[in-house]
Design a protein around this nucleic acid. Structure first.
Lengths: 236, 236
DNA sequence: CTCATGTCGATACACTGTATTGTCGCTCTA
DNA sequence: TAGAGCGACAATACAGTGTATCGACATGAG
């Protein structure tokens, strides 16, 4: 029985694991946004039937969870930070850069609790950088407050960015599309303060806005961390 | 020709407007989350065919925009705030309460630029409260920073809340579901700082966490607003 | 060599957003 | 008053979605 007689071995299914699945899903999302990630398309990229994936995940949301955690791997600090401020500063900026690389991250950020191993590692590294500087509750508040800030800021930045890009040519095209409505509204005179802000504002670039707001928040944290009794000035 | 001879007039379509459409959509979302809002279901609530809605919106996303703006009406300050801090404080808390009434708001917050009339009115009222206290750019930064904070904080709070509720009975059931995995991970010893935080943390309630973080951020804003030269302490 | 097992793919279902097309009542004109 | 145009509405259609179910089949054990 020569090779010629023997039929080709039956098409063995491609071996699959979560890593390959997530990589395919992330690639799809990078190309076409979260909406482009469908169970069928991910499976197709892996030469598998759609139902195959349900051996590894039990719901599409879980696929999103895995994608999130894959990105948290990019957010992990490369080397131990010098101090707590550098740790939080770095965390915020790395998260932002990850979101710029993977715009769909903005849709997921803060959407569900991040409990994957990489997300936990990020939390660990961050909390560790605050160790000994304050009681645990203050440290957690610090992390949560800063995280809340950059989550919100990143979401807004990417929402704006997407709104611009959606119209086609960025900026000029956008001004022509959204402009008429907005200028129309502002010219009604019902929003004088807003109009002044829009017309007289400096329109600083996104990164600087992000960095500045972050510094404000970090200053607030510093005030509590370095306060004599750990409480700092009373709020309100 | 009596009434009896005359046939019933043909079924006249229910008059429709955006307000009714949005009200129906909001009701559906309140009951079953954003996922429960489908063009068909909204239309069905109004005794209309699905395509009917496309005379008022051109895309489902636009329906979401309208829903958002409807909620912004609830966020508008009832009376003029006493000072800038009260304005921002009130804005944050009203937004949070709106999100607790309409949990789906968390999915939309910060997702797309809010340009509806009510959103603009909210921005106007907020910026107006800061008028004269600083240059325009500083005022905008203040609003954006605080907004970023409470957007992120609200999203996280509702994500956690949803994760708890999803398992069925809140808290105890949740501990039993997510608990095993989390404790398992923490007990590996790979996350000592995180483990300490989870086990020794005080687990303060959500509203206090929100309020405290907000006060921190407001303090940071205050430092810039009342600074002699409007810049306050240099960051980083 | 046979049989049980468990993995994989096909099929199916209920549903989605939206384009297209047809219909029908109203209003304006001759 | 008859007709014609028009605009709003509904029905149908299509391509795609997440996921449950089920049948087949290659692989391992006996």
């Amino acid at each position: 029985m020569t090779v010629w007689d023997r039929p080709e071995p039956p098409h063995r299914p491609v071996p699959l694991d979560r890593e390959r699945i997530v990589a395919a899903a992330v690639a799809l999302a990078d190309e076409g946004g979260l909406a482009a990630v469908s169970v069928r398309k991910v499976a197709a990229r892996l030469d598998a039937g759609p139902m195959r994936l349900y051996g590894f995940i039990s719901t599409k949301d879980e696929l999103f969870d895995l994608m999130m955690d894959a990105v948290y791997a990019e957010i992990l600090p490369g080397e131990p930070p010098g101090d707590w401020r550098e740790a939080l500063h770095g965390l915020a900026h790395r998260t932002r850069r990850a979101a710029l690389r993977h715009p769909w991250l903005a849709d997921l950020l803060g959407g569900r609790p991040a409990l994957g191993p990489n997300a936990l590692a990020v939390s660990e590294a961050t909390l560790a950088a605050l160790d000994g500087l304050a009681d645990i509750d203050t440290a957690m508040r610090a992390v949560e407050t800063v995280s809340a800030y950059f989550t919100g800021a990143i979401r807004r930045e990417l929402a704006d960015l997407r709104a611009e890009h959606a119209t086609g040519l960025s900026r000029s095209e956008w001004q022509r599309t959204r402009g008429p409505y907005l200028t129309g509204m502002l010219d009604t005179g019902r929003f004088p303060a807003l109009a002044k802000a829009v017309y007289d504002g400096a329109h600083v670039d996104a990164e600087e806005t992000f960095a500045t707001g972050l510094d404000w928040v970090l200053d607030a944290v510093a005030a509590r961390l370095t306060g004599i009794d750990g409480r700092g000035a009373p709020g309100r």
